[in-house]
Amino acid sequence: MKSSNTSLKVILTLVMLSFAVSCGSGNSESSNSDRPFNPVGKWEYKVTTDVSYGEIDISKSGNTFKAVMTTEVFGTLDLMNLKIEENVLTADLDVGGTPAIIKCEFDGDDFTGAVVAGETTFPMVGQRAGD
């Protein structure tokens, strides 16, 4: 009888350990979110007011980010004075002679933001482009 109690304790201990290990490994997703955000790559966007769409291509050389925005109407626009801090991108644009500001907040592989030209704000949404 004593032997079966010891065996039962060993089995229960093993079950509890395996449960604890599996719960701990389930946090691998949250450890991915602890990694710094990397905006480098192509991002598809849609300006929701005008239903305009295109792509933002972000690159990095050393510690400096560069980006260009491809549009349907205005061709390719350089994002000037580009800043990416944590998960927020801000930059200046020249949209057909009109100065504008773009601001996007990234959340994983998605972003929301706006292009502000004068007193008009154009909301936009986007996601990382598939390869």
Score class of each variant (00 low, 15 high):
Gly75His: 09
Thr76Pro: 09
Val51Lys: 09
Lys46Trp: 04
Trp43Tyr: 03
Ala20Asn: 05
Tyr45Gly: 04
Asp57Pro: 04
Glu72Lys: 14
Val68Met: 07
Ile56Gly: 00
Thr76Arg: 12
Trp43Gly: 00
Gly41Arg: 05
Thr70Phe: 06
Leu77Arg: 07
Leu12Met: 13
Lys42Val: 09
Ser33Tyr: 11
Ser52Gly: 15
Asp57Val: 10
Leu77Asp: 06
Gly24Phe: 09
Pro36Asp: 00
Phe37Ser: 00
Thr71Gly: 03
Thr49Asn: 09
Lys60Ser: 03
Ser30Gln: 06
Met80His: 09
Ser59Asn: 10
Met69Ile: 02
Val47Pro: 02
Met80Arg: 14
Asp57Tyr: 10
Gly54Glu: 02
Thr48Trp: 00
Leu14Asp: 10
Cys23Ile: 14
Leu14Val: 11
Met69Val: 00
Ser25Asn: 12
Asp78Asn: 15
Tyr53Asp: 11
Gly62Val: 00
Tyr45Ala: 04
Asp78Gln: 13
Glu72Val: 15
Val15Tyr: 06
Thr13His: 12
Asn63Leu: 01
Gly54Ala: 04
Val73Asn: 13
Glu44His: 11
Leu77Val: 00
Gly41Val: 12
Gly75Leu: 07
Lys66Met: 08
Gly26Asn: 06
Asp50Glu: 14
Trp43Asn: 03
Ser31Val: 08
Ser61His: 08
Pro36Arg: 01
Val47Phe: 05
Val47Trp: 08
Ser33Val: 02
Val47Glu: 15
Met80Cys: 01
Lys46Gln: 13
Thr64Met: 06
Lys42Thr: 08
Val73Arg: 15
Val21Trp: 05
Leu82Ser: 08
Phe65Met: 01
